[in-house]
Design a binder for these strands. Structure first.
Lengths: 294, 294
DNA sequence: AATGTTTTGTATAAGTTCTGTACAGTTTTA
DNA sequence: TAAAACTGTACAGAACTTATACAAAACATT
């Protein structure tokens, strides 16, 4: 992720172009940068701004947030994917400590407060990777007798936070929604829900519809609901005949389909053989992929 | 609660936006805040009001109550209080229709909106009995191929609504919390969560801690957490040797314990034989019972 | 029924903050 | 050389703030 950030982007655009495609005047773009530091494009040796594709997406997000009614000065907090620079001073251990302390006190509301506080500062994937997953792991290896309760409360708080973050975000409803589900393996849907939240914040109309009873049921729903695509998110190791089931699903689906989740990463080659598209691991790339679908 | 109040929420809106979406003029919003303190938005360092989504929902609720004929000055009680006036004209079929339509459209946010709208007008037990349970039943008997997804979205919306309603309610923290769990039977925890919300709105510090792996684990947590009591909420038919497990739990528990849920109603006599207290079926009586515990 | 009091939405005023844009002067690009 | 971008300052109008004031509606009392 941060490795990507340092690489020169394939395409870079002058300010005029950004203004053109986003509808924000150049002078305003500069003001935003100066006053709120929302977008920090690279520069030519002589100082001219060079906006990357990601920068343009950020501007789009800002515009969307403004349309939603949030004032420019307050956009920063609501914008996911900012706050990469502050990583030098890592507060993560402190946050983890706060989160676990809340759980040990069986205080779900306090745990939620921690998630909110941290979630306002860091992008979702960081929240997942640096706070939530470590906390879950720590609970898993803990010797505390009540860890089942702590884990349960944490999951509860996470779901609530994700929902609160997801609900109320205005998404692009002109496009057909993409349904996201799971049906091959058991387990929680943490990562799927986090990705859903990320996608919705990026303006995509992604909808988690719960775990499907069978691949055919999922295909059926894709058919009848008029969805624009289907995403199968599997993390745990699925049933033995998953390949067959996946083929079945693929043939029955009337719309584009892709697999995602940890499972898909473990079986890339096999999935390639089956000619089932795999969602990019990187969130930005994955979103781009979904955007250009159909 | 007050600790939560000054934490940054993910999204914050200026007063103009609140006015626009609720139809209440900014000047009136300020008057309400000054005169009745119903909504206390955060402030920027310079003093501008910052409304959270929850605040906006509160305003919506207030507007709805005013439309119902309740004067602003008395809204405060009705906001968290249990509505008593029974409706002469029942809108429930209409509400059910709206809810199901939202689900068929796979629109979880719209479903949530329906719950909020109705929940602002009626007490929770009515919401459960007249809207949620009938809707679940209807889905269960529906022939629609995607009913699993509809049910899943409904459960999702319900949980979110309950959580949102539960979070931020000030409870009596001087008393020791009562833990509520489930461990004998499988199934969803819908009714337990609804009761939790009711109890919290009544000022009781009841905390749902998820389903326990075993009765002893629950007893253990009651011990270590310093809880003031334990509530075992079971709806589905439990394992065969539930009586023995319950006895075990009762003996291991260091604090008062009671059983609740549909299961407890089906086995009143047996539970009496075991000398295990059963929570009153009526919500008001049940709350009274918990209040005088210990 | 008539009268007084409280409630409640809106209006006004005077001052502050926010935010998009304009302008001036310089440098870079094509 | 003309067009476009850069920086920094400036400014106007919109939006917010508090505080006081006022009229209509609702409620209470004689």
């Amino acid at each position: 992720m941060s490795a990507l950030a340092h690489l020169p982007d394939t395409k870079q655009f002058p300010i005029r172009h950004v203004a053109q495609v986003t509808g924000v005047l150049p002078v305003t773009l500069r003001a935003w940068e100066r006053r709120y530091g929302l977008i920090k494009p690279e520069r030519t040796p002589k100082g001219h701004r060079l906006y990357s594709e990601a920068d343009i997406q950020t501007v789009h997000q800002i515009v969307r947030l403004i349309d939603q009614g949030i004032s420019v000065g307050r956009v920063r907090q609501s914008l996911s994917g900012i706050g990469k620079e502050e990583d030098t001073v890592s507060d993560w251990p402190e946050f983890r400590e706060q989160l676990l302390r809340s759980l040990y006190g069986l205080n779900a509301m306090q745990a939620l407060a921690v998630l909110r506080r941290v979630g306002a500062l860091y992008p979702l994937h960081a929240l997942l990777g640096e706070l939530i997953r470590p906390a879950l792991l720590q609970l898993q290896h803990s010797e505390a007798s009540g860890r089942w309760a702590f884990r349960s409360m944490l999951m509860q708080a996470i779901h609530l936070y994700m929902d609160q973050r997801t609900v109320g975000v205005e998404v692009n409803t002109r496009q057909q929604p993409i349904l996201i589900s799971r049906c091959l393996a058991a387990g929680d849907d943490l990562q799927a829900r986090v990705f859903e939240a990320q996608a919705r914040e990026a303006g995509l109309d992604l909808r988690w519809i719960g775990s499907a009873p069978s691949p055919l049921a999922f295909a059926d729903l894709l058919q009848t609901s008029g969805a624009g695509g289907g995403l199968l998110w599997e993390d745990a190791e699925p049933v033995d005949d998953w390949a067959a089931q996946l083929q079945q699903l693929k043939h029955a689906s009337p719309v584009p389909l892709a697999v995602a989740g940890d499972f898909s990463l473990r079986h890339v080659t096999r999935l390639q053989e089956l000619a089932v598209p795999v969602l990019a691991q990187d969130a930005t790339a994955a979103l781009q992929m979904l955007r250009t679908w159909k």
